[in-house]
Write a protein that binds this DNA or RNA. Sequence first.
RNA 1: GGGGCCGUAGCUCAGUGGCAGAGCAGCAGCCUUAUAAGCUGCCGGUCGAGGGUUCGAUUCCCUCCGGCCCUACCA
Length: 839
Amino acid sequence: MDGFDAPYVPGWDCHGLPIELVVEKAHGKDIPAARFRELCREYAASQVERQKADFIRLGVLGDWDNPYLTMDYRFEADIIRELGKIQANGHLYLGAKPVHWCVDCGSALAEAEVEYEDKTSPAIDVAFPVADCSDLAQRLGLEAGGDCPAYAVIWTTTPWTLPANRAVAVHPDFVYDLVRTPKGLLILARDLAEAAIKRYGFETVETVAQIKGADLEGLTLQHPFYDFQVPIILADFVSLEAGVGLVHIAPGHGHDDYIAGLKYGLEVANPVGDDGKFYADTPIVGSQSIWAGNKTVLQTLTDNGHLLAEEKIQHSYPHCWRHKTPIIFRATRQWFIGMDKEGLRAKAMQAVADTEFFPAWGRARLEAMMKNRPDWCVSRQRNWGVPITFFMHKQTGELHPRSQELLEEVAKRVEQQGIEAWFSLDAKELLGESGELSAEHYEKAKDTLDVWFDSGVTHACLLKEREGLKHPADLYLEGSDQHRGWFQSSLLTGCATDGHAPYEALLTHGFVVDGKGMKMSKSKGNVIAPQKVSDTLGAEILRLWVASTDYSGELTISDEILKRVVEAYRRIRNTLRFLLANTADFQMAEHEVAMDRLLDIDRYALALTRQMQEEVLADYRVYSFHTAVQRLHHFCSEDLGAFYLDILKDRLYTSGANSRARRAAQTALWHILQTLTRLMAPILSFTAEEIWALTCKSDSVFLSVWHELPRQADADGLLGRWARLRELRGLATKRIEEFRAAGQVGSSLQADIVFLADGTDFDLLASLGDDLRFVTITSAARVERAPGDTRVEVAPLSHEKCERCWHVRPDVNVDPAHPGLCGRCVSNLFGEGESRAYA
RNA sequence: GGGGCCGUAGCUCAGUGGCAGAGCAGCAGCCUUAUAAGCUGCCGGUCGAGGGUUCGAUUCCCUCCGGCCCUACCA
């Protein structure tokens, strides 16, 4: 409608965990993977149809017959191709990362499959001997260095992770005490030292020195039971809520630990296998389950004297939601897109700078996330997802040297048969059976892609592939949660393949909350389902509610709010109905009155309409729909209903059907109708389309452009003069109301009013001549010159009321041939008709 | 706990370093030619709270309270 072709292709992300979970629930877990994927595909397809119907019902315009589904074979193949491009550009690497791991499932768990429940664990205090006491003494500013042994003490609830210990973390800002005890010197956070000492059962202790955490960085410690040393590192997440203010770091067994480890280049040690048992070659605990390992570690520490305390503790701990058993954090081999490997982060930051944001704060949010985010782990150990189609060396894990060619080979097959082509592929088919580069040495990667990758590459798989679409997209529109999701995944893939964002602008909206601003939840019972609103009040009301709500924050909805929306809808709809009714006998081609022969008030109404249209269009162009709705509504009720249309009724109903006065009014109404119908179409689409069908020949209002209102050179003058006239009119209505309250007049047509004015007000009122009474909707009105503030006097009229025009005039019944009519009506009906210039 | 945002009348929203606005709702009337309509008037606010900057703060700054999204939910 703004003169652009703006195609919208609806689409669905079809892969992913939520679908797997539903299918698992319905069919159980013990079905062959291939069959499982078939069921997922079926389920996804059924959901697409349901959601599609809802969107169509809402009046969303899109290419519903040709949506994109990320599970289309071609799409799946293109996802793989995008992965290939990113690999070719050097952003992809194989690394290790701790994931939630269920020993009973023998697989990684997604966040959604993790439940937190209370668990009893051993809580132990472990002493890590300081390797170089003279270094410590130097840091503390103490004389000499022989004061050994000294220990850094850590507290942990997972003793079995100690074999993977690679560091001890302290908080840079905390103060640590060096305390002399019968066991030797202990390093403990000052605020926790007393409690710790008590726990260890020491009576007399002496604080030898104090040191800031930051000054401990790099101090070397001896592992408490292995023959290697670990450093003290700094980490902000260290707290004083429990323990001793020093944290044991096992990068392979904890998220925080992993992040801290990345910073310090620590090894991501993972001595634990898929089955939850230590690898056989792990010293001391080899081949034991981690739970047995707990005991062995404890025993070892007791024996070598490094165990300071042992307690039982109950705490919240992650459990597998299926097995209800405690899960572990375990480092596994994963695929990553590196943020800094090939400058991706820098490109992404630039892309954020180049993007337009609605509202503007989206930029800060995305920027902050991009700046801090770790590398993107794109692999998942799942069934229903696009496979990572690489061949890796069985021993080294190196990618096959022909990876790019092979990937395209695979993509071609996926294009024909879907992802199943990969899963059922025998590596020998592509690699051959023998030789250095054959299936003898290389195996298929088993992972699937993070679904965020699927959605992240839609710009490539859809926009670049389908005819008539533009890349980059004009706009990506999503809820504010997608700063973390789609906005980001799309940005990263776009930057990794094209070097820029796949969108030019981002629009984000808040979430729907109840009337009190509270999140909706089934348990609270405050959920208002959009389907229900649509079914009871209609899709149009739902559309208007969305449009009239400021989406930059939360969108509140309640019964009262919807009631107000219905009111607003009625107002707009009734206004349009009036316009339709009063232009029913009007044909523009036949009856149009030239602009310069319209009455003054008509020309004002058109100037006002034009102004309103410009404002609404300006709103639309920055996606400010709620202000547009307010303007439209205000225009209908204030400018039209309470003013122009109210005044116009007399002319429309009483002047000659084909008189210039009436046709002039209709000309203006026709323009207003045209303007409003199109202007409201993006929001009140059904209503606009309905009106369009009544007034125009063409198929759809959406195939039209904004109505072009006639330009008026003196528009500003008109707007200025009539703005003041409306204020003066307000004085009259207010004064008349006093007489009405006193019972002296009912209808304003029973009143005779006099404006007492001077200066410009006098001139303005006088300029309307006899038409002044039509503006005030009184049967008589005049201006008298008087100094001071402009004011109004009212006198009730006692003449007869004309039964046709309802004006109370002295000349009612003047024509004996037409009893009950005033002179004006007789003239309008049988004579030349009255002439009006202003109103 | 961290990051981002929001808080103006009963409801939806404007607004500005200088008297706080509209529509709807409510109340009181009018009209019966938009009639499950229309018109008029009235009522309605500590601009979330408390500090600070300023001659002056609803507006700029800080703190707090309440709410929303993301993230971390720990050793």
